[in-house]
Amino acid sequence: MTPARTTVISLIGLAVLVVAPLVLLAILPQNQAQFWTSNILGRGLVFGLIALSLTFLATYGGFISLAQMTVAGVAGYTVAVLTQGAVPTIVGGLPYALTIPAGLFASVLAGLLIGAISVKTRDIYLLMITLALAMGVFRFVETNIAWFNGYEGIRNVVGPDIFGLSFRSTYVFYYSVVASCAVLYFGILYLVRSPFGLVLQGIRDNPRRVSALGYNVGQHRIAAFGVAGFIAGCGGVLATIYNIGISPGSIGLGASVNILIISVIGGLGHPIGAFVGSIIFTVFDTFAATIYDRERFNTLIGLVFLIIVLVSPDGVVGLKGRLMALLKPKQAKEAKSP
């Protein structure tokens, strides 16, 4: 797909997200429209942002990291620890105007640190080392009461007011999320055309040649994890505000694997897959208990994951290409026959 075509399709997708709340208000009662706007689309996009950080690393660098939820959690915990009004007060006293940038700064640092630790590894070894780091942070947070309030986590992180409007308003939250997603998504499309982005794709294809051209492979890899850390941090801050707090469960094994599942469902071939995957995942995560069995809703999510991976290993985004490939020989055969 050409960059121009990608941009057009992305802009159409963005337009759909912008008008979706209005359409929902037109066809559903107000409380249901708000539920779909906030709990399905809004929440889906927030986790899509965290998945976007993984998709960025995987699509352009070939790095699969299981620590992206941890990096998001670092941002979320930084905001929760520092913010005025959070319960319990750990440091507190600071407004969101300072704690959110601090959270993003911390997530970039965490990303850079994970990138530096894992700089020599690839494939399954990268997956394992990032999983180990994620579980280490999870256990540390869960058992540390003085800094993170242990298992209970930190509550009452309600979010800032934006131009006098509360972040708790469904539509303020939703459009803040959409704006964040748009800026970061189009930022990635721009970044991958820069020398940094091209080198990253070069590392994916052939790290030895990248080095032979004069580039420092390790430096670019670590920087990529830093960029992904910023993206995950944005998702982490929004997720913390959405959940009105953060607890260790939100950075545990299940949450970390969910980000990978979201990315695989959507497809690791293009950043848009992160959002497609996260909205599908959120729909099933929300309704699976109702339509199947409350006790076994994970089975349904697992089945959906299995079907998508079997039918299209490139995820939902790759479905079109697979359908076209299936139809083409048939069309050619029909054209040949008299």
Binding site: L191, S194, P195, F196, Y215, A223
Partner: peptide, 8 residues
């Protein structure tokens, strides 16, 4: 200036 975030 090989390390750059600016698209050419």
């Amino acid at each position: 200036n090989r390390f750059s975030f600016r698209a050419p």
